[in-house]
Amino acid sequence: MTSCPYCDLIQNEQFPLLYEDEIAVAFLTPTPHVAGHTIVCTKKHISILEQLPDDIAGHLFDLANRLSSIIHTALNTDGTNILVNNGPTANQDVPHFSINILPRRKNDGYKFDWNKRELNNELMLEIHNRIKTQLDKNIKNRKEEKEENIIIANQNKDQDKKQNKDDEENYLLKQLQRVP
């Protein structure tokens, strides 16, 4: 038994899955917030959003999106929510990254009625500057990293080519040396 309830559930096949592919699973949570509350997560243990590789993030959200539509039709809901709680401060209660699909009904008593705050201009601009600067920096770094990897890959290719050429020459020389 692992220390992760979702890993346990997946490994031990505790109850039937709604969906499964090579990367992800979907299942009805045994402790639903609302009826039909579905979890989409990776088979592999990944804790938070930042640890998800991009292609897997895309795969999971696309899957959750498609399933939300199917669940809407199957249960004749009035709406659906797709929700990620990323980190304990964000109310993540299982340490395994997951996307929640929540079937909704009019007047089901669950509201996203958070207090809409008024922040002064200065604070808004400060936050704008910080987030934008960080995002730009991260994107630039990733781009440079990618380009560096391409250069290294090309260098390796060239080296391989050279090695092949050397091998070929040696082979030819050996052939020549055999001629009486």
């Binding site: 809407h72 659906t80 929510n81 797709i82 929700l83 709680n85 990323n86 980190g87 909704r104 996203f112």
Partner: peptide, 9 residues
């Protein structure tokens, strides 16, 4: 932490 939310309907 962050919450990611989509509301359909």
């Amino acid at each position: 932490g962050t919450n990611i939310l989509i509301a359909n309907g």
